[in-house]
C-alpha cells in the first residue's frame, strides 16, 4: 500500500469514526432527520434500548468463539506494543477507538506485513457481524452504511497489504 493510499484510507476511516460518535445537528441534517430522531435512534442502537443495546459498539460483542475479555486484553497489549495509547474511559474494543488505532497505524510507518496481520488478528472476525446486526436494527440505514463502508475499507487494506507483502517477498 503506497503512502497516498494509506492516507486516503485513514481519512475515510476517520470519517466513519465521526459518524459513529453521538449525533450532531450537522450529521442529522445530512441525513435529513430531525436531531431528536437521530439521537433517539443512536441511543437505541448503541447506548441503551428496548431489549438491550441493539448493536453494542464493541467488537468483542460480535465474536463468536472468543472470550471478549481475552480479545480486549490482546488488542490493548498490541496497541501498547505499537506505542499507541488508547482512551481508558472506553473498553479497548470500542469500535470507533479501534478504527482510530488503525488510522494511527496507517498514518505511521507500519510495514505492510504489520498492517496485514493486524487486520487479520483484530479486524476480521467482527465487522461483518456488526454490519449484519445493524442491517437488522438500523431502520433508516445510516449506521449500516457506516458499518458496510468500514468492512469495505478493511477488506481493501487487507488485500492491498497482502499484495504488497507478497510483492516484497518476491523482490526479496
Amino acid at each position: 500500500m503506497i503512502a497516498e493510499e494509506k492516507q486516503e484510507a485513514a481519512q475515510r476511516l476517520l470519517e466513519l469514526v465521526a459518524l459513529l460518535e453521538y449525533p450532531t445537528l450537522e450529521v442529522a441534517d445530512r441525513c435529513d432527520l430531525k436531531f431528536e430522531d437521530l439521537e433517539s435512534r443512536y441511543i437505541r442502537l448503541f447506548v441503551n434500548s428496548l431489549g438491550g443495546v441493539a448493536a453494542p459498539p464493541y467488537a468483542g460483542c460480535f465474536l463468536e468463539k472468543e472470550n471478549r475479555l481475552e480479545f480486549m486484553s490482546q488488542f490493548s497489549g498490541f496497541c501498547l506494543e505499537q506505542g499507541v495509547a488508547i482512551d481508558q474511559a472506553q473498553p479497548p474494543d470500542y469500535i470507533p477507538m479501534m478504527v482510530e488505532v488503525l488510522v494511527m497505524l496507517l498514518s505511521g510507518d507500519a510495514e505492510p506485513e504489520t498492517l496485514y496481520s493486524v487486520i487479520a488478528d483484530f479486524y476480521c472476525r467482527w465487522p461483518e457481524a456488526f454490519a449484519s446486526t445493524l442491517r437488522e436494527h438500523d431502520d433508516v440505514g445510516i449506521y449500516v452504511t457506516v458499518a458496510e463502508e468500514l468492512c469495505a475499507i478493511l477488506r481493501e487494506i487487507k488485500t492491498k497489504n497482502a499484495s504488497s507483502t507478497v510483492a516484497e517477498r518476491a523482490d526479496g
Binding site: 503512502a3 494509506k6 492516507q7 485513514a10 481519512q11 476517520l14 470519517e15 469514526v17 465521526a18 459518524l19 460518535e21 450537522e26 450529521v27 496497541c79 506505542g83 499507541v84 495509547a85 488508547i86 482512551d87 472506553q90 470500542y94 470507533p96 477507538m97 482510530e100 488505532v101 488510522v103 494511527m104 497505524l105 498514518s107 505511521g108 510507518d109
Partner: peptide, 20 residues
C-alpha cells in the same frame, strides 16, 4: 465530517479522539 488528517506520522495525526 472529520477534520483532515494533516501530515502523516503517528505522533501528529489530527482529528483523533481516542488514541495518542
Amino acid at each position: 465530517t472529520a477534520a483532515g488528517l494533516g501530515c502523516l506520522g503517528m505522533s501528529s495525526v489530527a482529528g483523533l479522539r481516542y488514541v495518542s
